[in-house]
Design a protein around this nucleic acid. Structure first.
Lengths: 336, 336
DNA sequence: TTCCCTTCTTGGAACGTTCCAACTAGTGTC
DNA sequence: GACACTAGTTGGAACGTTCCAAGAAGGGAA
């Protein structure tokens, strides 16, 4: 709590040189004599000098910050993605400004505005709920990378996603291989990701000649949604022996409903999810799922964003990562 | 991607007024004529003007940002705390700079430095691993609020924590009430929180006259640590009928080990955790635990931090929130 | 000695705001 | 008609950096 924060001028005065030389020295320029450098460094250390990022950002017109808008923190897969984002951003000397998108559109806009006023050099959207129009508008000002969706395009927009249809097909084909034919599907609600996963389910069922067994129950990507949907399955189609659930969180709800209805998983009922949520692979849950490389997706997003920040007009990329079947404990051949 | 970002001067020129008046109007001063205000607002909208936070921060010496250092994202309870932090910060117009503390001390220091260079007005530490000395040094420059620990003090430091000893006692007393007497404890490793919870366990056991049954196995707050520790219990003290585990994540590991060893939870073995991790209360897991009001703790932390930012010399506070027994499905009376 | 070159160093301008003291144009009072 | 107010409005200084053109010091070549 010294009288005031030391500035570059204070360091200069103490070291007996000009502020310009301090600036140069502290940024590691090689055209500073060893003698001056030493004096400057020790003066800075002694004063506890910290460069003011706002001033620097103003002077060289770079904020060295990227903004991250994430839907919420309730689904832990976002934390895994964020982990990857943080890693790469940190290594490259970028700060990350993380904002959780509130469901209220007005507040969401104002939080976005706050991010942009900070002059973030780029934006990462994780499972956003912004309109295509909003995104286009924003990407006019700054590069944007979208994770988990690839349905928005724009000159300044890159996307990192997995092939949801393909992943869903893998899941359903696996159940079919195990011998299931009465396979239900719990959706994730009205959004692109959920629609793609549903399409994969329908495709795989049709291809296997199981078109008439298709049974789709609406869900909402939450665990309680999964619970409700599962009960609907058990009542409406008791012949079902397995379910492909739109995400892991919902799959946990399905498992709970199965247990509550007296069914053992996987002996009486098989469940397969989607995402690769870290917690679901804990031994206690041991959920079979389609695993997205979540941390890697976060990493890729920042890498691509920084690339575009550095070279604004590179061609758009739309990276599709591979999701893989993670065999675990919630799927088995049907017992009858 | 216009030639350059519009500044306050561009707005002023377009509206036919001075930059000062634009500044005034855009910040909602009441000493601007309705006419000018209108002209300014429409000019700003038309140009897509966004105030530059760096310039503002420089001019009025406030960054309107708080820094958050969180241990990692692996334990989902941190996400819950962050949720609360974000809520209150956002409502008050503050940006949050979130950084995950790497385990590497050197990198951790540099990330902290990055935060401070951004001139964050205060710092929130969630489950940090910084030395008391480092914290004191930092708190010399800026207010600090620590969540989940209260063992560091300083003129500028507030803490939000729960009473770990009391919470642990509640957990153990609950098991005793159910009829258990051979109760083991899995710790969270070498840190203050874990030590406090262990102390609560020992106290409760002693008070109940079960001193000779005390059995402490070292853990590390991770699920695999819990798994290992549980196996140690089953081998070393097969007479144990229950375990109080230092946190929920580890408790899940214990449950997995119980299942793998052929024990049913809670019939053969009772498990109680600590934290109130959202996922552990999912129906599938239904973990009995000591629930901390995590989101509320995040809220309180920001509230207190902002208070201290506004009025630097208020007396220190050390808020202790109440943790409560959350009765769920993993505890039952012993069967023999 | 003079001149040029290199190496190191410097002060001033710029970045986009906010704050402040001072100015202008009305409006009302005596 | 002079005066004091009030409501709006203004330009300049300041915030703490970086960048840039230019200066100083020292050495070698002619």
């Amino acid at each position: 709590m010294a009288g005031h924060k030391p500035t570059i001028h204070d360091v200069a005065a103490k070291a007996g040189v000009s502020k310009s030389l301090v600036s140069l020295a502290l940024r590691g320029s090689d055209k500073v004599s060893a003698e001056s450098r030493l004096a400057i460094e020790s003066a800075a250390a002694e004063l506890g000098y910290r460069p003011n990022a706002a001033a620097r950002s103003l002077a060289d017109r770079r904020s060295r910050a990227i903004g991250v808008l994430v839907l919420d923190f309730n689904n832990p897969i976002f934390a895994q993605i964020l982990d990857g984002v943080q890693q790469v951003a940190g290594v490259n000397g970028y700060n990350t400004l993380i904002v959780t998108g509130s469901s209220d559109p007005v507040r969401q806009e104002s939080e976005l505005a706050r991010l942009l006023e900070f002059q973030v050099e780029g934006l990462i959207l994780i499972a956003h709920r912004l309109s295509a129009e909003t995104i286009t508008r924003i990407s006019d000002e700054r590069p944007v990378t979208i994770i988990t969706r690839n349905d928005v395009t724009g000159a300044n927009v890159d996307t990192i996603s997995n092939d949801d249809q393909a992943g869903a097909r893998i899941a359903v084909e696996y159940l079919i291989t195990l011998g299931h034919s009465h396979i239900a599907h719990v959706t994730g609600g009205d959004n692109q990701i959920s629609r793609d996963r549903e399409k994969g389910y329908r495709d795989a069922m049709s291809t296997a000649g199981l078109r008439e067994n298709i049974h789709v129950i609406p869900g909402d990507f939450t665990d309680s949604g999964g619970y409700r949907a599962a009960n609907e399955i058990f009542e409406g189609r008791p012949e079902s022996t397995a379910a492909f659930v739109a995400n892991d969180l919902s799959a946990l709800g399905v498992m709970a409903a199965a247990a509550d209805s007296g069914r053992t998983v996987p002996n009486d009922f098989s469940v397969i999810g989607y995402d690769g949520m870290a917690l679901a692979s804990l031994r206690t849950l041991n959920l079979t799922t389609i695993q997205q490389p979540l941390v890697e997706m976060g990493r890729l997003a920042v890498t691509q964003l920084l690339k575009r920040i550095e070279t604004p007009n590179i061609p758009n990329v739309s990276v599709q990562v591979n999701s893989q079947l993670h065999r675990a404990g919630t799927c088995a051949p049907p017992s009858h």
